[in-house]
Amino acid sequence: MMVMTHVLVGIAVSAVATVVFPEAAPIALVSGALGGLVPDLDLYVGHRRTLHFPVYGPLATLGAVALAVAAPSVETVALATFLAAAGLHAAMDVLGGGLELKPWQETSERAVYSHFHGHWLRPRRLVPYDGAPADLVLAGTVALPTLALGGAVVDPAVVGLLTVAVGYTLLRRRLADCWERLARLVPPSLASYLPDRFATARRSTGLPPSDD
């Protein structure tokens, strides 16, 4: 799923948390948004493996929520919202498409790596790919109640994310074509630094993936 959806889910989590503990509102908003974003920072270093934890993430969330309930404070609520958003990010990606440049082609059976199981979890494709219309609908569905709970700080952020999500959805397939063309232009000596899905695009045209 697109990163905008994940960040919106993180903001929604923080909005719910701050209804119970309003004192944590500013920090919880930031921690929830960061929790939705941070897993995708592994985009160029083992994407959906390095920072995605579909089993350990939710387990860590349970511990953090228990701590926040037992000892509520700005810090414990912020930690719980961060871990909840990050854990949801990894779990949600299992429901999406495969780890490939054009996931609508359904050529990859890798969704998210589970460190608990020691192997890749297969994509469920309930949301066919990041930037699919279903992904945008999910983002909007999460955003609406968040707007109802939000305020002067939350609402502009949510509207901004939704605007970017609409643009990304409209351009998603064209962007994949552009990325594929750019991947073909990368010299073989630098191709090893490309994510696997770009290397696959090079191989599909007969280009060497790297000098190795």
Rank of each mutant, 00 (worst) to 15 (best):
F116L: 13
H52T: 06
G150E: 08
T141L: 15
S189R: 15
V69N: 07
A15W: 01
A17I: 02
D42S: 13
G10F: 00
A25M: 03
E180N: 02
M2E: 10
L194A: 07
Y56N: 01
A143N: 13
L51T: 06
A80Q: 14
V112F: 11
L194T: 04
S31Q: 08
P156V: 11
P128N: 09
F53G: 01
P26H: 10
W104H: 14
V74T: 14
A84F: 02
D177V: 13
D42M: 14
V154L: 10
A139G: 14
D196M: 07
A152F: 01
L185V: 05
V7H: 03
E75M: 13
G118W: 01
V94H: 08
A71W: 13
T200Y: 15
S204N: 06
D130F: 13
G36T: 12
G63V: 10
S73F: 10
M92D: 03
A201M: 04
L43S: 12
L162N: 08
V153N: 07
Q105K: 14
R48I: 03
V158G: 06
P145W: 12
R184Q: 12
A139P: 09
T205H: 14
D40R: 12
P156K: 09
A165D: 11
M1G: 04
V142M: 04
A148T: 03
R48G: 00
R172N: 06
R124N: 02
H6K: 06
V69D: 04
A17R: 02
P209M: 09
F21Q: 04
R49H: 09
R197I: 05
D42I: 13
W104T: 04
A90M: 10
T205G: 00
F53E: 01
L83T: 14
H47D: 02
G35F: 12
T18W: 01
H115C: 04
V3G: 08
P145R: 07
T5N: 10
G36H: 07
A157I: 12
V112M: 03
R122F: 08
F82C: 06
F82N: 05
G32T: 10
S31E: 02
G35K: 12
A78P: 03
L43Q: 07
M1Q: 00
G10L: 05
R197E: 04
S204G: 00
L83S: 08
S189D: 09
S210P: 00
T205D: 06
D40I: 15
V77D: 01
T81S: 11
E75W: 15
S31W: 12
S210K: 11
L190A: 15
A17F: 01
L171I: 03
T61L: 07
L79W: 15
Y193F: 11
Y44E: 09
R49D: 03
V7E: 03
V7D: 01
P54S: 06
A86F: 03
A134W: 05
A111N: 05
E100N: 09
A71T: 12
P72R: 13
V3Y: 00
P195V: 11
P26W: 12
H52D: 08
V69T: 11
G160D: 05
P39K: 14
L190K: 14
S14A: 15
V30A: 15
L136H: 11
L175R: 10
G131M: 13
L99I: 05
P72V: 08
A183V: 07
Y56D: 00
E23T: 12
V158Q: 05
V7N: 03
R184M: 07
L190C: 11
L126W: 15
